[in-house]
């Protein structure tokens, strides 16, 4: 047991808690100051400015690239807008041309229609007139035929031909149905 206890002691043999052993403080102090100051000098002189420079350059580069991209985007937007405008103009013109063409065509067709209609009316009227005249002629002929037929029937029945005026008057005086 005694041997174990002896072993538990710190190798230096004081049996004290190492972080509280003041005899090592001067050495630690000197080395800490030395290394820390050296590290600080390296960081302050070399590392921090360099990293700061790298980061600044990167952010500048990114900003530049973003600005360039923005510019390109604006240009492409402008081109797109111009294209859209041209397209709309062309469409409008096409619409206008189509409208005028349609109107003129419609007008021409209307005129043709009217002309044809008038012509047809005229022809219809002429035909009507000719029908009426033909009918009148036919009706006169009908009277003559009826008189002839009546004269022939009477001659056959009576044996003697009646006077033409009498027959005509009789046909004429037939009750109209």
């Amino acid at each position: 047991m005694a041997a174990t206890n002896a072993h538990t002691e710190a190798p230096a043999g004081q049996g004290k808690f190492p972080p509280f052993e003041t005899q090592y403080y001067p050495s630690q102090f000197v080395w800490l100051v030395l290394t820390f100051v050296l590290l600080y000098a390296l960081m302050a002189r070399v590392a921090v400015p360099r990293i700061g420079g790298i980061l600044a350059e990167r952010s500048k580069r990114i900003a530049d690239d973003v600005a360039a991209a923005q510019q390109l985007k604006e240009r492409s937007d402008a081109a797109h807008a111009a294209y859209e405008k041209a397209l709309a103009d062309a469409r409008g013109r096409a619409q206008a041309i189509a409208n005028t063409t349609r109107e003129s065509e419609a007008a021409a067709a209307d005129e043709t229609n009217k002309r044809l209609e008038a012509e047809l009316h005229e022809r219809l009227a002429a035909a009507d007139r000719s029908i009426a005249s033909k009918r009148a002629t036919a009706m006169e002929s009908v009277g003559a035929i009826a008189a002839e037929t009546a004269a022939a029937i009477v001659e056959r029945l009576v044996g003697k031909a009646p006077a033409a005026e009498d027959v005509a008057a009789a046909v004429h005086n037939l009750p109209k149905r």
Partner: peptide, 21 residues
Amino acid sequence: FFTNSAAYMLVILVLVSALVI
């Protein structure tokens, strides 16, 4: 003295410098 603690301080110095620089 140069102690084990000092040795590790130097290791820190070297490693940090190596990484950062």
